[in-house]
């Protein structure tokens, strides 16, 4: 096998710059939205001060946090703070909100990266082999498995998994962190749905690619089946697959709220739910900004992968 050719460096830089500018514009839009929407939720003073607090105290609290300024002035301050990297304090934890969020986000990022790597590898392999002998035994088996995987609700799987593997068999811890064993159940549960969905997309896309004219050419050249599947067809078939991988990865990066909560996993999804319940708005805002930034970065990666895979997109 000969390694596929890379991009020219100039074209690559230009491409990245273009996408970065577009992403930045979207990010600014998001900051505006998050800011004003959060201000619509009501007067923070009423939420953070004790019920019996006097009007004077509330006034003082608003003064302290600049809440008496006109909305646009507040926004200017907020943007100024965001630009210097200051997302405010977490009122409950008395630490910078950004630190709290980044700590949780690191957990989620690891969870998402490990899960999606496993999903991608497994789904491509299974989907490709199913497509190669479409209609055969393996294809039908993988269709059933992937259909089940894409359909079962993850909270149910999570609970059943805890009952079976933690409570009854006592092989794995029920929740929390601390050892490698703690990772196994969350990853396994999060694996199922994206795997089911991506297998189906890979299979469909590969069937199209395998019946294409260039595959006929490869067969006429005497290329081996393995190389036809994984070199000729797969790269062409990956374009729609990558989009779906991006979607699935994004939903994990947002924080797999339910699964993280069930397993007591200290990720950003659990943090967001906790902060909303505790009305810690600075943390919610920071969490939204951080995950949004992560998703923008990931979309940039997806776009780059597109361009890397298909030379026609580069022009």
């Amino acid at each position: 096998m000969i390694p596929p050719p890379g991009l020219s460096e100039g074209a690559m830089l230009k491409f990245v710059r273009k996408r970065a500018v577009a992403s930045l514009i979207s990010l600014v839009g998001l900051i505006v939205m998050v800011f004003f929407l959060s201000r619509l939720t009501g007067d923070p003073a009423a939420l953070f001060l004790p019920v019996e607090a006097s009007a004077e105290m509330k006034q003082q609290f608003r003064e302290l946090h600049g809440l008496n300024d006109p909305l646009l002035v507040q926004f200017a301050h907020y943007v100024g703070d965001v630009l210097t990297g200051d997302l405010g304090e977490s009122l409950r934890k008395a630490r910078p909100a950004l630190d709290v969020v980044l700590e949780a986000f690191t957990w989620t990022l690891w969870l998402a990266v490990i899960t999606m790597s496993l999903v991608t590898g497994a789904a491509i392999l299974v989907g490709s082999l199913a497509a190669f002998r479409a209609g055969g035994f393996f294809d039908r088996l993988s269709s059933i498995i992937s259909l089940i995987g894409a359909s079962v609700p993850d909270f149910w799987v999570a609970i059943v998994a805890i009952v079976v593997f933690s409570v009854n068999l006592a092989w794995l811890p029920t929740s929390g962190t601390g050892s490698l064993l703690h990772w196994i159940l969350p990853i396994a549960v999060l694996f199922i749905r994206p795997f089911g969905i991506i297998v189906q997309v890979v299979r469909g896309s590969m069937i199209g690619a395998l019946s294409s004219a260039y595959v006929k050419t490869a067969r006429a050249k005497g290329v081996k089946s393995r190389s036809i599947i994984f070199v000729h067809a797969l790269r062409n078939a990956m374009l729609p697959v990558i989009t779906v991988i991006g979607d699935q990865a994004a939903s994990l990066l947002n924080g797999a709220v339910i699964v993280e909560t069930i397993f007591g996993f200290p990720g950003v999804g659990k943090l967001m739910i906790d902060s909303i319940l505790q009305r810690d708005f600075n943390v919610v805002l920071a969490a939204i900004l951080v995950t949004a930034l992560a998703i923008f970065l990931m979309n940039l990666l997806i776009d780059l992968a597109y361009a890397l895979l298909d030379p026609r997109i580069r022009h």
Binding site: K216, T217, K221
Partner: peptide, 23 residues
């Protein structure tokens, strides 16, 4: 398989779709 390409080769009507677009 070893015959294809080495002893017998083939060209087709529509070379754009018969060449792999990504290599």
């Amino acid at each position: 398989r070893a015959v294809n390409g080495r002893r017998i080769a083939m060209i087709f009507q529509d070379p754009l779709s018969h060449l792999n677009p990504v290599y």
